[in-house]
Simulated scan of single mutants.
Amino acid sequence: MHQAVVRLSGGRLGRLRRWLDEAGHRPETVLWFGESPTDVSGDTHAFGVEFVNAWIDKHLDMPSEAVGE
């Protein structure tokens, strides 16, 4: 789990905070994004990770609890 969160954050503290929050609520989501799932293509998985990280970057000013609402 720790490796997945660090990998997904790309060294950005705001992303790290969001991924850690997600791990606390839905660890299976973090593991899916942090690993290489077999149920989708590598390109689809990479797109998903990039999409979520871009979304996180746009919402860094908001408290993490408010983003999910």
Rank of each mutant, 00 (worst) to 15 (best):
M1G: 07
G34V: 12
L8K: 04
L31M: 13
R12I: 09
V6C: 01
L20C: 05
G11C: 06
A46D: 14
Q3L: 14
M1T: 10
G14T: 03
R18C: 07
G10F: 05
E65M: 06
H59Y: 07
H2C: 10
T44E: 15
H45C: 03
D61M: 03
R15T: 02
E50G: 15
P27E: 12
T29A: 12
S36P: 02
P37Q: 02
L60D: 06
A54H: 12
L16K: 12
E65N: 07
M1R: 12
G10M: 00
L8R: 04
F51Y: 14
L20G: 00
R12Q: 14
E35L: 11
H45N: 05
G10D: 07
G42H: 09
G68H: 05
G48R: 10
E28W: 05
H59L: 04
D21C: 04
R12D: 15
G14P: 00
T44W: 01
P37S: 06
R18P: 04
L20T: 05
E65K: 05
V67R: 12
G48I: 02
D43F: 11
W19D: 00
R12H: 15
F47T: 12
R12K: 07
F33T: 03
V6N: 13
A66V: 11
E28P: 03
D57S: 04
G10Y: 03
E35Y: 12
V67T: 04
S9P: 03
D21T: 11
L16G: 00
P27Y: 03
T29P: 00
W55V: 04
E69Y: 12
F47W: 11
S64V: 14
F47Q: 11
L31V: 13
I56Y: 11
R17K: 13
F47P: 00
V30F: 06
G14Q: 04
S64F: 06
A54E: 04
R12V: 15
N53Q: 09
K58S: 05
K58V: 06
G14E: 09
V5M: 05
R18H: 08
T44H: 12
V52C: 08
D61Y: 11
P63I: 01
I56F: 15
